[in-house]
Every structure is written in C-alpha cells, then in structure tokens.
C-alpha cells in the first residue's frame, strides 16, 4: 500500500462519479454520481492523513467534513427532487433547464 495506489483509487472513483454526473438524465442518478465523486475525496483525504501527517488529526477532520457534505447533498437533492416533481412532474435534469444559459 502506497500513497500513489490510494490516490489512484480516489481518482478512479472521482472519474466514475464525474461520468455519472455528466451523463445521467435522472436527478436521482446524478446524485449517485455526486456521492461516488465525494467518496473519492474521502479516500484521498484518509490516505493523505495516513501517509503525510498521521501525527495530527487534521486529515481526519477533512474526512468528517466530506462525509457531512455527502449527507447534506443527499438530503437536499432528494428534497429538491420531491419539490420539482410535485410542482411540475419533472424527474429528469433535461426538463429542469430553467437556468440554461
């Protein structure tokens, strides 16, 4: 186990999540892509904590922040999905393009 292997895993998770974020139509599937990407950040932060500065707990705090971001993102995403589905019967990102430039 080296730092490079961990970071490669994190990069792969992030890239897979990014693909899902960009390609999926359903809002719920986009949320899953976001979760995968944040999971990559968690792995990377844990690896940095261990290999670079395991004497101090700062890396762990970063992991905790990423986990909280994940929970908040999921809750808010589902609430917004519910709200927009109720208002307009929309569950796809393509139909919610009000802010498209």
């Amino acid at each position: 186990m080296t730092l490079q292997l961990f970071l490669l895993l994190a990069a792969a998770l992030f890239a897979v999540g990014l693909y899902g974020l960009l390609s999926q139509q359903s809002i719920v599937m986009i949320l899953m892509g976001l979760e995968l990407a944040i999971n990559g950040i968690i792995v990377a932060a844990a690896a940095f904590w261990f290999f670079a500065a395991s004497g101090r707990p700062d890396g762990q705090v970063l992991v905790l922040v990423a986990i909280s971001a994940m929970a908040i993102e999921m809750a808010m995403g589902f609430a917004i999905t519910t709200a927009i589905f109720r208002a307009r019967d929309v569950d796809m990102a393509d139909s919610a393009s009000d802010l498209a430039g």
């Binding site: 490079q4 990069a11 890239a15 990014l18 693909y19 960009l22 390609s23 139509q25 290999f51 393509d94």
Partner: peptide, 28 residues
C-alpha cells in the same frame, strides 16, 4: 437513461488520466 454519453465518457477519462498523471509524477 443517459444523455451526451460519449462526451461524458471522454471528459471522465481525461480527468482520470490528468489526476493519475498528477498522482504518479508528483514527488510525494
């Protein structure tokens, strides 16, 4: 269930290659 599949794939692979290059070539 997907839109713009090909471009998404290209972007995701490019990001991975970029990150992997950074991981492998940075003097940790």
């Amino acid at each position: 269930m997907v839109h713009n599949n090909k471009m998404s794939l290209v972007i995701a692979v490019a990001v991975f290659v970029l990150l992997a290059a950074g991981v492998l070539f940075t003097p940790w």
